[in-house]
């Protein structure tokens, strides 16, 4: 523990990141550039999220990490042990008990509360990136609120698939101003972004951008009048806990192609099972 400064980064770096976070909170949805550091993990594994977490953690925090909703996958386990070693903070898998939650691609099913911070890992912060490759141009488009192109993408979806087929990283408009990429969360989670009591911070390490949603921010998913946004999920129930209101992963269980659907949020699923709920695949 004493080999590292608290939470790995030095104090000046954390200051710099906190400044970016504060600016992000002051302008919800705006991408604030910051001097992203090399972290002892590869780009794409959550270097942005880790830096944001390092900047907001205090010794009294209880830290939770999820990867696609699960507490026990590689990414979640290594980031959790990273902060156990470098910050000596208490860790938990319980959503309710955590004060800082770092997440990759999910928002926990248990509603967040005031005082909690949700830190997202973001691969590509620019929602317009694949529509307009020039960074100078996308910045101008944000500046002038020229977001017609975003709807061209949704138009293409409908013309090709008959419905809006974008199912993750679904673009949102924040407080009627900035269009934002909510990181690759399933669009099922999009409604949870809006009016959330917790602080939501987004860190993109490779792209060197931080953006944020202060508590109770209005976040609207883009859509057409005649093709409204729909928060979709597989039309199944969880095989273990029987939940029909949580986002489900499809898991192939044998070589014969049998499959089951389980909650992607492991904490939520375990809580339900210990409360006595059973799904049809539960042993």
């Amino acid at each position: 523990m004493s080999d590292y400064n608290f939470a790995y980064l030095d104090e000046q770096t954390k200051r710099m990141i906190r400044r970016a976070i504060l600016k992000g909170l002051a302008i919800p949805g705006y991408q604030v550039p910051f001097a992203s550091r090399e972290m002892p993990m590869p780009y794409g594994w959550g270097t942005g999220g880790v830096q944001v977490s390092a900047a907001v953690l205090t010794p009294d925090d209880r830290f939770k990490v999820i990867d696609q909703g699960a507490d026990d996958t590689t990414n979640a386990v290594s980031i959790r042990s990273f902060f156990e070693r470098t910050a000596d903070v208490e860790t938990t898998t319980e959503t309710k008990a955590a004060t800082v939650i770092q997440t990759r691609h999910r928002i926990p099913e248990t509603p967040l509360t005031e005082g909690q911070i949700l830190v997202y890992q973001v691969p590509i912060p620019e929602p317009l990136r694949f529509l307009e490759p020039r960074e100078t141009e996308t910045r101008k488009m944000h500046e002038l609120q020229e977001y017609g192109l975003m709807h061209v993408k949704l138009y293409e979806d409908i013309s090709k698939h008959g419905h809006i087929a974008t199912s993750y990283a679904y673009p949102v408009k924040v407080e009627d101003r900035y269009v934002m990429d909510p990181s690759p969360i399933p669009k099922f989670d999009n409604p949870k972004l809006s009016d959330c009591p917790a602080i939501q911070l987004f860190g993109a390490g490779r792209e060197q951008r931080i953006y944020a949603l202060p508590p109770y921010t209005k976040v609207v998913s883009l859509d057409f009048d005649d093709y409204p946004f729909e928060a979709s999920k597989p039309n199944q129930t969880c095989g273990l806990c029987g939940a029909d209101d949580s986002y489900l992963d499809e898991v192939i269980v044998d070589d014969a192609g049998r499959r089951m659907f389980v909650c992607s949020d492991t904490d939520y699923c375990e809580k339900r099972r210990s409360a006595g709920h059973r799904g049809r695949d539960a042993a």
Binding site: G148, L149, H151, V152, Y155, E156, D223, F224, D225, D226
Partner: peptide, 18 residues
């Protein structure tokens, strides 16, 4: 697509009805 190309200007000035 061709339709998207024609529709872009409409969407840029606020058309939101597919």
């Amino acid at each position: 697509s061709a339709g998207g190309n024609v529709g872009e200007r409409l969407m840029a000035v606020g058309a939101r009805h597919y």
